[in-house]
Simulated assay, not measured.
Amino acid sequence: MAGQFEIFTDAESNVRFRLLGADGTVLAVSKAFEDKRSAADGIMAVRECAGTGLIRETHSTPWGGTTWTKSSTAARPHSRQRRHFPAV
């Protein structure tokens, strides 16, 4: 059995969707949408880009935020290139 999307209303009365794995495990929860139609459009967008999306690693800061470091040719040797992993 494949995973599925589920549209629901959260505790603050916002419409959201979640992606469930084949075993029912929640894999992802969406942002809040204004209505069910917008949530359905969000599901369609996820379906379109999920198979082609790249994986990017970020580093957490001590206060819970994330940092993005720009690669600089002067600061890093060329042997350390960014690696992109294909979506599974």
Results as ranks from 00 to 15, higher is better:
residue 1 M to A: 08
residue 2 A to C: 08
residue 2 A to N: 09
residue 3 G to H: 02
residue 3 G to T: 05
residue 4 Q to K: 15
residue 4 Q to S: 13
residue 4 Q to Y: 10
residue 4 Q to M: 07
residue 5 F to L: 11
residue 6 E to N: 02
residue 6 E to I: 02
residue 11 A to K: 11
residue 11 A to H: 12
residue 11 A to S: 15
residue 12 E to M: 13
residue 12 E to H: 15
residue 14 N to Q: 12
residue 14 N to D: 15
residue 15 V to C: 12
residue 15 V to H: 07
residue 15 V to I: 14
residue 16 R to L: 05
residue 16 R to S: 01
residue 17 F to N: 00
residue 17 F to S: 04
residue 18 R to I: 10
residue 19 L to K: 14
residue 19 L to D: 14
residue 20 L to C: 12
residue 20 L to S: 12
residue 22 A to R: 08
residue 22 A to Y: 02
residue 23 D to Q: 10
residue 23 D to G: 14
residue 24 G to I: 07
residue 27 L to Q: 07
residue 28 A to N: 05
residue 29 V to R: 03
residue 31 K to I: 05
residue 33 F to L: 01
residue 35 D to R: 03
residue 35 D to W: 02
residue 36 K to N: 13
residue 37 R to Q: 08
residue 38 S to K: 07
residue 38 S to A: 11
residue 39 A to D: 01
residue 40 A to G: 02
residue 41 D to W: 02
residue 42 G to A: 01
residue 44 M to W: 05
residue 44 M to T: 08
residue 44 M to S: 13
residue 47 R to F: 00
residue 48 E to D: 14
residue 48 E to P: 04
residue 50 A to E: 01
residue 50 A to D: 03
residue 50 A to P: 02
residue 50 A to L: 11
residue 51 G to Y: 02
residue 51 G to A: 05
residue 51 G to K: 05
residue 53 G to S: 14
residue 53 G to P: 09
residue 53 G to V: 15
residue 53 G to R: 15
residue 54 L to R: 01
residue 54 L to W: 00
residue 56 R to F: 14
residue 57 E to Q: 10
residue 57 E to A: 06
residue 59 H to G: 02
residue 59 H to C: 06
residue 60 S to G: 13
residue 61 T to W: 11
residue 61 T to L: 11
residue 62 P to C: 13
residue 63 W to N: 13
residue 65 G to N: 08
residue 66 T to H: 13
residue 68 W to M: 05
residue 68 W to R: 14
residue 68 W to F: 10
residue 68 W to H: 11
residue 71 S to T: 09
residue 74 A to I: 12
residue 76 R to P: 00
residue 76 R to I: 01
residue 76 R to C: 03
residue 80 R to C: 06
residue 80 R to T: 09
residue 81 Q to R: 09
residue 82 R to F: 04
residue 85 F to T: 13
residue 87 A to Y: 00
